[in-house]
Simulated scan of single mutants.
Amino acid sequence: IRIDGKEVGFRDGGARQRRSERDLAAMRAETGMVFQGFNLFPHLTAAGNIMLGLTKVRGKSSAEARSIAEHWLGRVGLAHKADSLPAELSGGQQQRVGIARAVAMEPKILLLDEITSALDPELVGEVLAVVKSLAEDGMTMVMVTHEMAFARDASSRIVFMADGGVSAVGPPKEVLAAETTNERLRTFLARFRASQF
């Protein structure tokens, strides 16, 4: 796995030499992550959750971090919730704060792990709209999802994994084609075609 041309975990070159913890920490700082669970700090406001990494990791002043937090909260449609605690937000709103928190750090890549699985069905759309907007702006993302229609519409490349390995990879139109010869993929997609495609 390479991020911005650098192999993760090992140094580039002939001998596979593990990266130092310092190198790994620097690479992690360039990677954003949004989890299944919202993982917001319950004692911090929406803005405070976003500001924490900006001040502690990026060394921004509180004023600059607040400005960035307000920008991203506005971008995910939550400018009016900047001073709300997580308990005062719906699940979809909490997940959008989680996305804003990750993107505010200006990562080179954003990892999204089943970000809609903990949401009520009516809240899924608002979260996916934010992700699609980020994709349209050119954000590099790796997203694990069972939202097949969304994957088709928002992805430039799909990787279908089964039994711990890559089973199919390519552009959405190819991977999700009805005439795929991959039996495991065809069986998986059959469950979604009636409701999503």
Rank of each mutant, 00 (worst) to 15 (best):
R2W: 08
M141E: 08
A29N: 14
V166G: 05
G138Y: 02
F150Q: 02
P107F: 04
T45L: 06
I115N: 01
G138H: 09
K173N: 10
G98L: 05
L185D: 03
T45G: 06
A190D: 10
P121F: 08
F38E: 08
P107K: 07
P172T: 02
L44Y: 13
F41L: 13
M161F: 11
A87P: 09
K60H: 15
V124W: 07
S90I: 04
H80D: 15
L89M: 15
T45S: 15
V34N: 03
P42W: 00
G91K: 09
L134Y: 06
L52D: 14
M51E: 15
V159K: 07
E30R: 15
A102H: 08
R184S: 02
R191H: 12
V76R: 12
S195C: 00
A15H: 09
M141H: 07
T31P: 08
R22S: 14
L185I: 01
A194M: 01
V130G: 03
M51A: 14
E183N: 01
E64V: 11
D23I: 10
K60P: 04
D113E: 11
T145W: 01
A47S: 14
A69I: 10
N182G: 00
V34G: 03
E122W: 05
I115G: 01
L189T: 00
V8K: 06
V8P: 05
M139T: 13
H80K: 14
R157C: 08
F41M: 12
Q17E: 15
M105F: 02
A25H: 10
R191D: 07
R16T: 13
E30A: 14
S62R: 14
L128H: 04
A151R: 02
L119I: 10
L73Q: 12
Q36F: 06
G165H: 11
Q95S: 05
D153C: 05
F41D: 03
K56W: 10
E88K: 14
L24E: 11
R184H: 03
M27I: 14
G91Q: 06
K81M: 15
D113A: 12
D120M: 07
S117L: 06
V103T: 04
G91P: 08
A65K: 10
A177P: 01
Q95E: 04
E136I: 12
A194S: 09
G48Y: 09
N39E: 12
G74M: 13
R101W: 04
R96H: 03
A177I: 00
L73A: 09
V144C: 01
F192N: 01
V8L: 14
Q17I: 15
R75A: 14
A87T: 13
M51L: 07
G5Y: 05
V130E: 00
G125S: 06
A154H: 04
V130S: 02
S167H: 07
V57W: 12
